[in-house]
Each structure stands twice: as structure tokens, then as C-alpha cells.
């Protein structure tokens, strides 16, 4: 059970300022029509494009549970009709990686294995090629802040899912913090076990609203005030 660090009062907690973010989606004008071209282009596109295609489903289909996997897996399964490749690409455990380049390397490894053993090249029908995209992120502070676990819980209920997304996904992978922002704040303010509990969540297996509820529940269980 997490407790305040020895001699520490809640009033001493640094304020957590909720930031939010919004993305503008770019079209790269590059497309793949088979698994070989997909491999070539995944290796070439900017890291932001790999991030986009492994994360935006969380936004677009956040009402579906379980959520569809990453875009590459969805395309391999539903357009190339390659269930085996689709399953391999879908099963990549993104939470285990701490950088986008590591994620990219894992996709390339799977595609190399597939392409070297594939008996034939399956082409996507015309008009259903894989179109590479990317995004530009605009991050900005919200009016919500918290100086105690109770306030944190209340504000987390109010912020948009964009803010939740920024602190849980962008902070960890794109800002290279290696850890989500909430865990960092809990840790810095004397709640190491709460920090660890939130860090151990696999956010990729929740809908965004489900993730919000899971974090609030964890904070409640650690907040004795």
C-alpha cells in the first residue's frame, strides 16, 4: 500500500499540470501494395509515421473493445488476406519498447521473416494500397492542475481523452521519457507503488475511457485522505 514518503505532507506535492495535445494528420503520398513494399517503406518513413500507424487506432476506434490492432496488421489481415502475417504484426507488444525506432525494428524483423519465406507475393487490390501517413502534434497546457491525489483524480475525470493520451502515450515514447507522466509525478511525490502500478498497466489493451477509469481506480486505492 502506498503511503506518503516519511515526513511528507500532501500540501508539499508539486502541482501536476495537465497538458493536452491535438494532432494534424499528414499524407506522405507513398503507398505499398504488398508486404515487400510495406517493409521497404516502413524502413524509410519518418519515425512519426511509424508512431502514427501504431497508435492512431486507439483514437479512431476507441469505442471498440477489443480495439483493432495497429494499421500494418489490420491491412495485412483485411486487404492482403494474410492472416498469419496479420496475427504476427498484431501481436507485437508495443508497451515493451521505449522508443519508436525499437518498434520499427521489430516490424521490420517480422516482415523480413515473412518475405523471405513467402511462397508468392500477394498484391492489394487497386485502391486498397497501404497509404503512409504521419502527424504533427500541438501540445498545450489546460486549465486543470492537481496538488493532491484527490485533486488528481477529480481532474483526470474532467480532462479530454487527448490529455490522457498525451501523458500516457506521447510522454513515454515520443518524448523519450521512458515512463508515463503520471507515474513520474507519483514517484516524485512519494507514491512509488502507485507510480509502479500505473506504469505496469498496458494502455494498449484498454479503450481510452477504460484506461481513464483504471487509473482513477488505482489512485483511489492509494489515496487515504
Amino acid at each position: 500500500m502506498a503511503r506518503l514518503a516519511a515526513g511528507r505532507k500532501e500540501a508539499d506535492m508539486n502541482a501536476f499540470l495537465f497538458t493536452t495535445k491535438l494532432d494534424l494528420t499528414y499524407l506522405l503520398g507513398r503507398k505499398a501494395k504488398n508486404a515487400e513494399e510495406l517493409r521497404t517503406l516502413i524502413a524509410e518513413v519518418p519515425a512519426m509515421s511509424v508512431y502514427y500507424h501504431t497508435h492512431h487506432f486507439l483514437y479512431q476506434h476507441n469505442y471498440l473493445s477489443p480495439e483493432p490492432p495497429n494499421d500494418f496488421a489490420f491491412w495485412a489481415t483485411n486487404v492482403l488476406n494474410d492472416d498469419a502475417l496479420g496475427e504476427q504484426l498484431a501481436s507485437i507488444d508495443i508497451i515493451q519498447f521505449v522508443s519508436i525506432d525499437e518498434i520499427r525494428a521489430r516490424f521490420l524483423e517480422i516482415l523480413d521473416g515473412h518475405n523471405s519465406s513467402a511462397e508468392r507475393v500477394v498484391e492489394a487490390p487497386r485502391g486498397e494500397e497501404f497509404h503512409f501517413m504521419s502527424c504533427q502534434t500541438f501540445a498545450f497546457p489546460t486549465s486543470y492542475s492537481a496538488s493532491s491525489l484527490r485533486e488528481f483524480r477529480e481532474q483526470l475525470e474532467r480532462v479530454s481523452v487527448n490529455s490522457l493520451y498525451f501523458h500516457m502515450f506521447d510522454a513515454r515514447l515520443r518524448l523519450k521519457a521512458g515512463m508515463n507522466d503520471f507515474s513520474l509525478w507519483f514517484q516524485d511525490n512519494g507514491y512509488p507503488s502507485l507510480a509502479e502500478a500505473v506504469r505496469k498497466l498496458d494502455p494498449y489493451t484498454y479503450t481510452l475511457e477504460g484506461l481513464r477509469r483504471a487509473i482513477i481506480k488505482l489512485v483511489e486505492s492509494h489515496d487515504k485522505n
Binding site: 491535438l22 500541438f138 489546460t142 486549465s143 474532467r158 480532462v159 479530454s160 490529455s163
Partner: peptide
Amino acid sequence: GRGMVEELFLL
């Protein structure tokens, strides 16, 4: 949701 509308004002 209120949060989404507030973000439009901020932007």
C-alpha cells in the same frame, strides 16, 4: 464533452 470544447478555445 466539455474538455473537447475547451481545447478549441485554447487553440
